[in-house]
Amino acid sequence: MLTRGKRTVALVVATAALVVALACGSLAVLRDLGQQDSSDSSDFDQDISRAVPRDGFPVFNNPPMVSAEQAAGLRDDDWIIGVTVNGQAKVRVHSGSESMKNDHDDGRFSGNFRFAVLLSLRHLNPFGPFLGYNGHVQAKAYPVAVMGVHELGNDTCGGEPIAVSW
């Protein structure tokens, strides 16, 4: 009886141990899952550091731009980041109104919207070359030295909203 009782106790203990073990196991799994998440963030934390305050750089939004002739301060051997976007007039008009909405949000008026409207007119009734457009291509250049001030910009090119970053 005693032996049997001992057995029962042993069984109970073993079962309890098993339950505890399982619980611990689940906890371990949970912890693992948690660790996956947190290891993600600890990697993140490890890899991340603050260089400057948020908005520490004067990021530009649809900045006024000048023609090649007007860019007097630029030297021939200055590095620039150049982008060209091929667009259809229709697409430009559409995205032009989109960029107008954006600019409205920003409280600014978009030069690109004007381009878009005029370009659609040109599409219907061509009247020769148009500033900034080379056929159906719009080309924009961002001097690297000037980008050193801003680091980042929101702009449009050929009707495409672009993030200028490099």
Partner: peptide, 26 residues
């Protein structure tokens, strides 16, 4: 978006009608 880092002289000769961001350098 494909873009190119190049010199101003090179870019201007290829896209004479390019617009360019003007501003302070740093």
């Amino acid at each position: 978006l494909p873009s190119r880092v190049t010199t101003w002289a090179k870019w201007r000769s290829e896209y004479p009608q390019t617009l360019v961001l003007n501003g302070r350098r740093a």
